[in-house]
Structures are given as C-alpha cells and as structure tokens.
Write a protein that binds this DNA or RNA. Structure first.
Lengths: 159, 159
DNA sequence: GATATTTATTCAAGTTCTTGGATATTTGCG
DNA sequence: CGCAAATATCCAAGAACTTGAATAAATATC
C-alpha cells in the first residue's frame, strides 16, 4: 500500500524510522531496512546503521528504543542512576525513583518512542506509567529494567 | 577583543546573529555584517540576507526582531489576530488579547529576541509584560504595536 | 519620479554531505 | 575457539549545500 514515490531525504527517512520503531517490533538493521522498503523507501543496511547512530537509537535486548533528541531535557542515560525500582501492576507500572527525580524520569519515559505507555504521572519519588493493558505494562516494565541494566551506549557514536 | 579565530560554520554564525540582534540595535544587513566582523566573523551582505531569511527574522521599523523557530509553539504571526490592545504603564506593558489567547501571546513574547522584556505573566485575556524601566516598556509597546500592524512577511521566504 | 539605500537573486566555484557496495569488526552462541 | 549474525567503517561518486561577487529588485527619500 504505502508507495510514497518520492526520493525522500535523510530527515524524512529518519523521522519514518522513529515512527516505524515505535509501531513495529524491530530488532535488526536489516529489519528496519525492510520496514522502510515496505513504505517505499529503499536504503542499504549501512545507511540504517548511520541513521540509528545519528538518531541516538538504543538497542535493548532485541528491540530498538528511540529518544528524540531534546537539548534541555534529561536523556535516557539518567534512568540507570535515578530509577530505584520497577513494579508492574495490572496495566500500570509503578516506578520508584530517587527523591525529586520522578519528574525527570517521567519526562524521559514520555518521550521514548517504542514504549507502550499511554501517559505518566509523577510525584516526588514515584512515577506511575499507564499502559493499555496488563501485557503491555509487563513489557514496559521489562524494557525499562533492561534499559537501567544496559550500558547506555547508543547504537553508534553520535558525533 | 572578540577575535574568534575559527572558520565558524553556518549554524554558529546564525546563532551569533540572533544574539547580536537581541543585544545591539541593528537595522540593516550591512550593520549586521559589521557586527559580525566585530566578533571576528566576516561574511558578505548576501550571506546575511540569506541568514536572516532562514532565521525568520522580522524587520519592524528599522529594528530586527527574531523569533527562534519552535515547531509546536505559536509563531509571531498570531499577534495581529490575537492582540486587541497595548498599553504601557510604568515599566510594564498591559496587553489585551482575545479571550483564551493570552497564554499563546505571552509565549511568543517570551521567545522574541530583541524585545526588552524581562518576563511575562498571562491571564485569560491579558498579558502583563515586565520591562526593566519605563523607557524600555514604552519601546516594547511600540514594537509590539508595529508588529501587529506590519505585514508579517519575514525578511525573506523561508523555503 | 529620480536617486540612494537596502535587500534579494543569479551565477559559479569550492566544499561538504549522502549513500551504496565491499569489507572489517564486533557480538552471540555453541 | 570457530562460526554466524549483526553492525560499523572505508571508499568513491554523485548530489546538495554554502558563499562571495555582481547585479537585479524593492524600498525609502526628497
């Protein structure tokens, strides 16, 4: 269906990548390239590699997560040091954080593409993340835990 | 003094232009070019012309005003339709707006470079802008009025 | 409306960017 | 360790961007 017949420049393609990452479960650059092809954008794996690096996309387990650059806001790298505990409950995830950092954490979560979070509410040291259903919440909790455990090195050295 | 001996790329130069515009009273592209030269950045008038256009700088009377691009926020073009009245009072300016639009108007004013505004407070249909002194407030009021009167065409067609 | 000032555009050259193909490197797993 | 999968990097060619000089167009001034 998607036959976007246009040369598409780099920026457009990267925006598309962010969208695809948040919609589908993509775990390899080849997969991303194929997803792009589905949308009518054909590029080599090398290009996907460079795009992911420039976008600062993070690979956690075998799932890409993207946090759109926003100078002035906290980055995903604060999670490991701010998050103390993660507990899924029904379709929610209760995240315990260092005192005073709940706002920063929820801000990051709000901006991460690829997380099945509908919205967040932050207190002083607690963030409540709402997902659509129990399964999604479980997945979200797992991913956040992975992020906190993982070396925050993104998929490439963003110059 | 300012002898920034570096080739300076386009972005750096444009950021510098925004700063110079808000600090000094610049009214011609030649003047901007000279101000840049003072900082050690030498460019032709043609380049300044293109920079101002790309930055979306507006010329009101013989004063440049810049509103940094911020997709997602209202642009300066909303002023003519939202602002109903402008009254300077001491070091303040009281701006009457269409009901519900005071927030948008204050947001724009906060972001305009070159206006001598220390800060703003918005109600429902009123914005209070605080300047450092009576003279500055008077100037601010005049500039806002000019903006509202002027054709909002920026200094160039930002492609 | 003629002149001077200010701004925009055209042109050409030099530079940088972008990208695919090939290849090297890294990572994960037995 | 050795293999396979995944990712990063080198290289070269073409595309796109950047910029100054010259010039045209627009605007202001008298």
């Amino acid at each position: 269906m998607g036959a976007t017949r246009a040369p598409v420049d780099k920026t457009t393609r990267q925006d598309l990548i962010l969208r695809l990452i948040s919609e589908r479960d993509l775990g390899t650059q080849q997969g991303v390239a194929e997803a792009l092809a589905d949308e009518g954008v054909e590029v080599a794996q090398a290009t996907v590699s460079r795009d992911l690096a420039e976008l600062g996309v993070l690979k956690v387990g075998n799932r890409y997560l993207a946090l759109p650059h926003d100078p002035g806001s906290a980055g995903i790298e604060v999670l490991p040091s701010f998050v103390l505990g993660i507990v899924p409950a029904r379709n929610q995830v209760v995240i315990h954080t260092r005192d005073g950092t709940a706002g920063a954490v929820s801000s990051v979560l709000d901006r991460v593409k690829g997380l099945k979070i509908l919205g967040t509410i932050a207190g002083q040291d607690t963030v409540l993340a709402i997902s659509s259903d129990d399964e999604a919440a479980e997945e979200v909790a797992g991913l956040i835990a992975d992020v906190c455990r993982a070396k925050t090195r993104p998929a490439g050295n963003v110059e």
